[in-house]
């Protein structure tokens, strides 16, 4: 029973990790660059939600009504006003800029909210459990998290596969120069992709804040989890994110069951192991160029 419980909890934890990875996978898939402030942006969204609940009296989940559009605009603005300026110089400027941004967000949050750990209060749903069998109770909110993840993945997949804009995203990812010949403005697509990623991050941040407490310096660990999800699942693949999240969650939970100190380490080792045997991940989708 303990083994089953560990496995199920690992899968549920993986749902959260897959959410971390989803936004990063989207931007990598289209722009081929990693936002090193990804984890800090998740934490920023959590704090913005906290602010909304304090000012407007919303519950954290209600705050998404405000948060999703606001985060979309921040992401779109970041890409169009800052990151697009460096496109022609390769990946290094974007990496360094987002690395700098990571420090700006962390210390900005520290100055604005102090280093105290905080928590988003959604109410009873946080602690409710679902008892599957005697001695086997799973948290309701982690199950909901997995549900949100699945909805987001299917929605994203439908958007990419069925809409003109989604096809333009994929065309730009394949070959931005030829996409330009189809009338697709790559800079705008990049802006929209980052906006979309930030909108997903808004959802992620709120869920993270309800599930656990948080502090301004939690971002880097979130970035690493998101990155590991992508390495395990395969770069630029939406379904790979699901697999990557679940495997990372399982690895950590199993490691943690052996000894609490192995929790994160087991996840890192699983990632490095995948990197050693299958460098393009389990479900590679991105077509490698040049």
């Amino acid at each position: 029973m303990i083994a089953i419980s560990t496995a199920l909890n690992g899968i549920l934890l993986g749902g959260l990790y897959a959410l971390y990875g989803l936004g990063l996978s989207l931007t990598f898939g289209i722009m081929r660059t990693v936002n090193l402030a990804h984890g800090d942006v998740i934490v920023l969204a959590t704090y913005l939600s906290l602010l909304t609940t304090q000012i407007l009296g919303f519950t954290p989940l209600m705050s998404l009504v405000v948060l999703v559009p606001v985060m979309f605009c921040i992401g779109y603005g970041l890409q169009r006003l800052v990151l697009n300026r460096t496109l022609k110089d390769g990946m290094m400027p974007a990496v360094i800029i987002t690395f700098g941004l990571s420090f700006v967000i962390q210390n900005g949050l520290l100055l604005g909210f102090s280093a105290d750990r905080q928590v988003l209060r959604q109410g009873a749903v946080e602690t409710m459990g679902v008892t599957l069998a005697p001695g086997l109770t799973l948290g309701l909110f982690p199950i909901l998290t997995l549900g949100v993840l699945l909805v987001l993945i299917f929605a994203l997949q439908a958007f990419m596969g069925r809409t003109l804009l989604g096809r333009a995203f994929r065309a730009t990812s394949d070959d931005p120069n030829t996409a330009e010949l189809m009338g697709i403005d790559g800079r705008k697509i990049y802006g929209l992709a980052m906006g979309l990623a930030f909108a997903i991050i808004a959802v992620t941040g709120v869920i993270m804040g309800i599930r656990s407490n948080f502090s301004p310096f939690d971002g880097p660990a979130r970035l690493i989890f998101a990155f590991e999800v992508i390495i395990i699942g395969g770069m630029g693949s939406i379904y790979g994110v699901l697999a990557g999240g679940l495997i990372l969650g399982l690895a950590q939970t199993i490691g943690g069951a052996i000894s609490p100190t192995y929790f994160q380490l087991a996840g890192h080792l699983a990632t490095l192991g995948i990197l050693a045997v299958r460098p393009s991940g389990l479900f590679p989708e991105t077509i490698e160029k040049g």
Binding site: F28, R32, T33, V34, L36, G90, M91, A94, V95, L223, I224, F227, E228, I231, M235, T261, Q264, L265, H268, L269, T271, L272, L275, P279
Partner: peptide, 20 residues
């Protein structure tokens, strides 16, 4: 096995692994 930005984050993962 990795390029560009992925190389960057992977170096960090390795450092974290050693630290932990």
């Amino acid at each position: 096995r990795l390029k560009g930005a992925y190389f960057a984050v992977a170096t960090w993962v390795i450092a974290e692994t050693v630290r932990l």
